[in-house]
């Protein structure tokens, strides 16, 4: 039997420790899943762009659980593992578009010090995504940041049940 990989003394049902942790508040979990999935299902932001930023936020947090997962929408849209492998040093790596670089810079600032985001950093993001797209992008960043912290604070680790 697998040990529950978290600081929490109890857990709910679920396929991994993130789900088992959040399942302790099932009503919140359901509402969170609905909110978090809308950005992918409705394609409010390009899924490859969004996945790169999700993973970069997780890298900054050192959050193993979100780093262990891949969003199907992004994979199907062409995001591959070699590019993800270059993400930790994206600023000196080839293969990232100008928009991806602008959004990664913005996402990093969101995590590190949201107060310090400059107009120069925001301008290319807003220009490319538009007002509605930028709002969706920042909402998604809030989810990535918040639940990266959730996983770190509760020490939620990736550990799938054996098939």
């Amino acid at each position: 039997m697998l040990r529950f990989m978290s600081w929490l003394p109890e857990s709910g049902p679920g396929r991994d420790d993130f789900a088992r942790s959040f399942a302790l508040r099932p009503d919140l979990f359901e509402a969170w899943k609905e909110f978090a999935s809308i950005f992918w299902e409705k394609r409010l932001v390009d899924p490859v762009l969004l996945e790169l930023c999700r993973l970069r936020v997780a890298q900054l947090h050192g959050a193993a659980y979100p780093l262990s997962t891949r969003m199907r929408e992004a994979t199907e849209a062409g995001l591959d593992e070699p590019k993800i492998a270059r993400l930790a040093s994206w600023w000196k790596q080839p293969g990232f578009t100008d928009l991806e670089r602008a959004c990664l810079r913005f996402a990093e600032q969101f995590v590190l010090d949201a107060k310090a985001i400059s107009d120069e950093e925001a301008r290319p993001v807003v220009a490319a995504l538009g007002d509605a797209g930028t709002v969706a992008f920042v909402e998604a960043l809030a989810i990535f940041d918040g639940f990266g912290r959730f996983c770190r604070m509760l020490d939620v680790q990736p550990r799938e049940e054996p098939a």
Partner: peptide, 10 residues
């Protein structure tokens, strides 16, 4: 937030 009504509702 009103730019994304579905996300806002969720």
């Amino acid at each position: 937030l009103g730019h994304q009504p579905e996300a806002l509702q969720a």
